[in-house]
Amino acid sequence: MVSKSRIAWAWLALLVVVDLALPWGVIGTSPRFSGPFLFWVVWTLVAIASMFVLFLRWRE
């Protein structure tokens, strides 16, 4: 079974790839706030939500 730690590292790697691939490969030329601007806001909210899911489980 793959450990939670490895899943978390893989998720982070996926976030990084998406962070670069979408703005430079797909949506970068959209001259509107619904383009790269909205993408990065949503990307960050997903990253932050992922972090909360992981660290809210921490126990003393």
């Binding site: 590292w9 962070d19 990307w43 960050t44 990253a47 972090m51």
Partner: peptide, 23 residues
């Protein structure tokens, strides 16, 4: 423009590393 937002928010996403290293 918007690249500056991506630059700084990518930094914030990098705080994911703290989930591993802070404890």
């Amino acid at each position: 423009g918007v690249g500056a937002l991506g630059f700084e928010l990518t930094y914030l996403g990098g705080l994911f590393l703290a989930v591993f290293f802070l404890p």
